[in-house]
Design a protein around this nucleic acid. Structure first.
Length: 112
DNA sequence: AGTATGACGGTTA
DNA sequence: CTAACCGCCATAC
């Protein structure tokens, strides 16, 4: 086949291919165990590149194929885009909540 | 190549 | 506790 085939079981992204950084981010998010969460900054640190905002940019563009709801803000707040949906998904995974925020002390996943 | 944007984060008021 | 500001970094145009 072509030289740019990538056989990615990921998702029907819009137009354009995910950059190496984007793939690293998506891979990291896909690795977050069920019932656990990572902050945007945690993901950036995990992939060793970019920053919290850059991670948000990637998820906003190609995050439809990964458990995006497992990525929360550093304060434990769900995605500002669909907080209600994210909360429902997280609660269905037994993620500990306090008020409207994830109990980071208990649900935060460090990547290992 | 440069400017504008945003699903962030930490600090300061 | 809320609000505003700045810094950071990949994308879009």
């Amino acid at each position: 086949m072509g030289s740019k085939e990538r056989a990615g079981p990921r998702a029907p992204h819009p137009a354009g291919d995910p950059t190496p950084f984007a793939e690293a981010v998506l891979d990291a998010v896909a690795r977050i165990p069920r019932g656990r969460v990572m902050s945007y900054g945690d993901v950036a640190e995990y992939v060793g590149a970019g920053g919290p905002r850059a991670v948000g940019t990637v998820l906003a563009r190609w995050g439809s194929g990964v458990p995006w709801h497992r990525v929360v803000t550093a304060d434990g707040r769900p995605n500002p885009s669909d907080p209600d949906r994210a909360r429902a998904l997280l609660r269905s995974e037994h993620v500990a909540f306090r008020r409207e925020r994830v109990e980071m002390s208990a649900a935060r996943w460090n990547g290992r």
